[in-house]
C-alpha cells in the first residue's frame, strides 16, 4: 500500500524528514510515534501529495506521489492535524461538499453525511456554524469528513488530540470497526502512548526525521526495555540474601530484577525466596510502556512536552 525509499524533506536548513524507508502492506494499522517536530506530519503530508519531497520516492496505493497525484488522491483519505471544516460553513454542508469532491453524487453524499453525523454523535451540532463548535466537536467533524468516501487507505494526523476520554474511546472503536468492515489500511500519528499501544499492531518510532524503531508494541517493549520486578524486604540482610539468590543488585532494602514475562513468573520467584529464607515484604511488577522504549532509544521522554506544558500553565 505504501512504499518509500529515502523519503526526505528539508525546509531550508531544517531536516524535517531525513531518508525514510517504509513499507506498509494492505490492511495494516500503523502508528507513527515521536516527539513534537519529529517529522510525523511532514511524512504524512508527503504521502498524501500535499508537499513534494526534497529527495527520495514514495508510492501510495500503487501510484507515485509526485507524478500521479490525482490517482493517489482518489484512493486515500486524510485527516490533518488542523481543522478541516471552514469556520463559516455548517458541518453538514461541509460533509456533503467533501463527498462531492470525491465524485459521490449529492444524494449519496447527503446520505453518508447523515450516517456519519449519527455515528460520531454530531446530530446536535451538524447544522450550526463550525465556528460555534467546541474543539472536540470540530475534531469529530474532521474525522467524519475524512471517512465520507470510505477510503481504502486512511491517514490520520493526531486524530484524538483534543477529545475527551469517552470520545477518544469512541474514535478508536470507529477506526477499528472501519478496519474490520472494509479492511482499510490505516496510518496514524498520536501522542497518546496507550493509544498506539492498544490500537496499532505496528509502531514506528520517529525522531529527528528518521525511523529509529519499527515493530509490534509488545516486541518493542520486550526488546528495548523488558519487564522489571522490584522486591521490598524488611531487613537489608534479607535483601542481600535475595539479591544473591536472584543474581541481581540490591539498593537498601530493595532488589530490582529485569526479566521477561514478569507477571507470570513473579509468584514463582516469591515462592523461591520464601523457601530460601528471604521472604519478600512487597512486590511491584513493572511492565514497560512505549515511553520507556522511547526513553531507552533516545535518552529523552516523550512525555517531556506534556510536563513543560503543565509547568507553563502553573
Amino acid at each position: 500500500m505504501i512504499e518509500t525509499r529515502g523519503l526526505t524533506k528539508h525546509f531550508k536548513d531544517v531536516h524535517a524528514v531525513d531518508g525514510i524507508d517504509l513499507t506498509v502492506r494492505a490492511g495494516e494499522l500503523v502508528a507513527l510515534l515521536g516527539p513534537n517536530g519529529a517529522g510525523k506530519s511532514t511524512t504524512l503530508r508527503m504521502l498524501t501529495t500535499l508537499i513534494p519531497p526534497t529527495a527520495g520516492t514514495a508510492t501510495v496505493a500503487g501510484f507515485d506521489v509526485v507524478r500521479r497525484q490525482r490517482e493517489v488522491r482518489l484512493r486515500i483519505g486524510y485527516i490533518g492535524q488542523g481543522n478541516g471544516a471552514g469556520h463559516s460553513q455548517r458541518g453538514r454542508d461541509e460533509l456533503i461538499s467533501q463527498g462531492r469532491a470525491y465524485g459521490m453524487s449529492t444524494r449519496d453524499s447527503r446520505q453518508r453525511a447523515a450516517e456519519l453525523i449519527e455515528s460520531l454523535g454530531l446530530a446536535e451540532v451538524a447544522d450550526r456554524r463550525v465556528s460555534t463548535l467546541s474543539g472536540g466537536q470540530r475534531r469529530r467533524l474532521d474525522i467524519a469528513m475524512g471517512l465520507i468516501h470510505s477510503p481504502g487507505l486512511l491517514f490520520l494526523d493526531e486524530p484524538s488530540t483534543g477529545l475527551d476520554p469517552q470520545n477518544r474511546a469512541n474514535l478508536q472503536e470507529h477506526i477499528l470497526a472501519l478496519r474490520a468492515r472494509h479492511e482499510t489500511t490505516i496510518v496514524l500519528t498520536t501522542h497518546y502512548l496507550d493509544e498506539a499501544d492498544s490500537m496499532a499492531e505496528r509502531v514506528i518510532v520517529i525522531d529527528h526525521g528518521r525511523i529509529i524503531a519499527d515493530d509490534t508494541p509488545q516486541r518493542l517493549k520486550d526488546t528495548h526495555v523488558g519487564d522489571r520486578i522490584v522486591l521490598g524486604f524488611l531487613h537489608e540482610s534479607d535483601a542481600a540474601g535475595a539479591a544473591a539468590v536472584l543474581r541481581t543488585e540490591r539498593k537498601g532494602t530493595q532488589v530490582r530484577l529485569g526479566l521477561p514475562n514478569a507477571p507470570r513468573r513473579a509468584p514463582g520467584i516469591l515462592d523461591d525466596l520464601r523457601t530460601a529464607g528471604y521472604p519478600a515484604a512487597e512486590i511491584e511488577v513493572i511492565r514497560p510502556t512505549l515511553d520507556d522504549v522511547f526513553l531507552q532509544l533516545t535518552g529523552r521522554s516523550l512525555r517531556e512536552g506534556g510536563v513543560d506544558k503543565e509547568l507553563v500553565e502553573v
Binding site: R70, G86, G103
Partner: peptide
Amino acid sequence: LFEIQTGSHERMLVTPLR
C-alpha cells in the same frame, strides 16, 4: 488566508478536485 491557517485548505487539496 484563514483557511490555510485552520487546515481546511489542506483538506481541500488532498481531495481529487482538479
